[in-house]
Amino acid sequence: MVKQMGDIQAENVEIEKKMREVARSLLIEKEVDVIIGYARGTVPLSSSPIFIKNVEDIDSLIWDNLCYVNLARYVVPPLTEFVDNEKVELKVGIVSKGCVARALIHLAKEKQVDPEKIKIIGIPCNGVVNRRRIEKELGEKEVLEISVSNDQVIVKGKDFEEVLPYQDYLNELCKTCKVKSPPMSSSLSDVIVGESIEISSVEDDFSDLSEYESKTPEEKWEVITELLSDCTRCYACREACPMCYCNLCFVDQNKPIWFGKTSEMSDIIVFHLVRAMHMAGRCVGCGACSSVCPMGIDLKLINRKLEKIVKERFDFTAGLSLDVMPPMMTQKMEDSEDFMLGEH
């Protein structure tokens, strides 16, 4: 079902206003020590995560359709500060669209985030613009201004103006997103402030995967190889991912070296696919990995496929509730293993 589009710009102004109010009162009431949110970027097609400690700076917080970084990425390990020579863990308020809240909930399940130390400032996300696709399609025309109005993305440069349909130019994962606001459950009632929705299970037909799934294993391999062929191994995808919090990533292990570090296609693919294995039942579909990739590689195919496998085998969607045990953190005798060596 496609949501009837209101005026997105007006929606954003409204969201921004409420978000600032909530954030301001959290700081004033000393419920949190710091607010993590988004600030306006200095270049078009960007936004910049910001850490706010003073109430006067609250108006730097923005919400628009370019708030693509998953802010949950900044709270593992927890933010700390030295007070009288002692390290104290800060209480953090985090501006959270659905996927940021889901990441925080999942991280809490993995005992990486203490729900007592965070406040989820819920906002009803209306999607993130696919900045890499816009860049690629405009080609060698520099974007100087971007705005969203009604159901259109308006992109301006020195001698041009392009009007693009908003629904088409969303991030691929936003197109299939079913959890726009933080998912509320009784165990989270103290944690979520602002907007939230009640949702305990996600219905999804994964029809976006049917084209890929109709391919032969050889063709699938070709698709994956082609998808990843431009990777420079800058690891922006990993660094932007809220679930990639390992102190030392498998690919950085060097005593001994487990995985090749060269830019041979085989090494690049091994990095991405082994990382994908670690994402199963954990990826919340925020699409940050795709938004930050300097080469414009979109990992949504891999992420959606993982989501589908986990949904089918374990009826689980990551980050919906604190009450459900994620499949990768538990074991049942009847767990099936047929996904392990299949040709996906």
Binding site: R233, C234, Y235, A236, E239, A240, G260, T262, V292, P294
Partner: peptide, 25 residues
């Protein structure tokens, strides 16, 4: 550095960065 992700975009795509690692393939 507060919001830095720690990725290699700025350096890998810099025309003057010269650092390299030596590995066995």
């Amino acid at each position: 550095s507060e919001n830095c992700l720690g990725c290699g975009t700025c350096t890998f795509l810099c025309p003057t960065c010269t650092c390299f690692d030596v590995v066995e393939d």
